[in-house]
Write a protein that binds this DNA or RNA. Structure first.
Length: 211
DNA sequence: AACTCGGGGCA
DNA sequence: TGCCCAGAGTT
């Protein structure tokens, strides 16, 4: 496993490759970020962006969802997949936020994870991205890329989250999440990763161990 | 830990 | 046609 100095070097290289990383998940309100992140489960980013761009024109606050039925919202978000579950979760969460939180999102992980459809990953995205709480969200990209390179060596996403917090300075947790996601999407793909055009391959355990 | 939800894009 | 994608909930 890499030491912190090597990790920092890898992240610096990735940052040079992805200067747009800060702009990821830049929704205008925490509620919009929550909805978009719920929609993102097992769905590509371009489709989520396409759906939210249309949806948020009329439905961008919890109260906007109170009069929607599950099937009505389901049709609007159909193309993101799992739309019946997502529709139910979004409507239930909107109702809870309206009734119990004055339409504002809570800022603790415990309260966020009580909202239907909000798991640990989504809660951490909201904390780090909307509230700057310095959480680090581990999705499939972050899990795969950080373990391949050797930034961490863990068997599940929760342990990966804890190890990443040890390996990365707190001030760059949020940025590092975005860098690892972008690298996972564009280069370090789940299947057929583009190792030859990867700029951190010289540091990568996966590349140096298997190729 | 395994299973289910799911439409759309791509080979 | 078959495979895969910004996860979460239930058992």
């Amino acid at each position: 496993m890499m030491d912190k100095k090597q990790v920092k070097k890898v992240l610096e290289i990735l940052h040079q490759n992805y200067p747009d990383a800060e702009c990821e998940l830049n929704y205008s309100t925490p509620f919009e970020l929550m909805v978009a992140t719920i929609l993102s489960a097992q769905c590509t980013d371009v489709r989520v962006n396409k759906v939210t761009a249309e949806l948020f024109k009329e439905y961008n606050k919890p109260e906007d969802y109170l009069s929607l039925s599950e099937s009505e919202l389901g049709e609007k978000i159909r193309s993101t997949g799992f739309y019946r579950n997502k529709s139910r979760h979004i409507l239930e969460s909107a109702r809870i936020l309206y009734n119990e939180y004055g339409s504002e999102l809570p800022q603790t992980r415990e309260e966020l994870m009580k909202l239907p459809g909000v798991g640990r990953k989504t809660a951490n995205v909201i904390l780090s991205n909307a509230f700057k709480k310095n959480a680090i969200a581990v999705d499939t990209h972050v899990f795969r890329v950080s373990n391949r390179i050797g930034i961490v060596n863990e068997s599940d996403v929760f342990k990966t989250e804890l190890s990443l917090m040890e390996q990365i300075d707190e001030s760059s947790w949020s940025l590092s999440h975005n860098l690892l996601v972008l690298h996972g999407r564009r280069v370090c793909k789940a299947r057929n990763p583009l190792c030859e055009e990867c700029d951190v391959k010289k540091y990568c355990l996966y590349y140096n161990g298997t190729v």
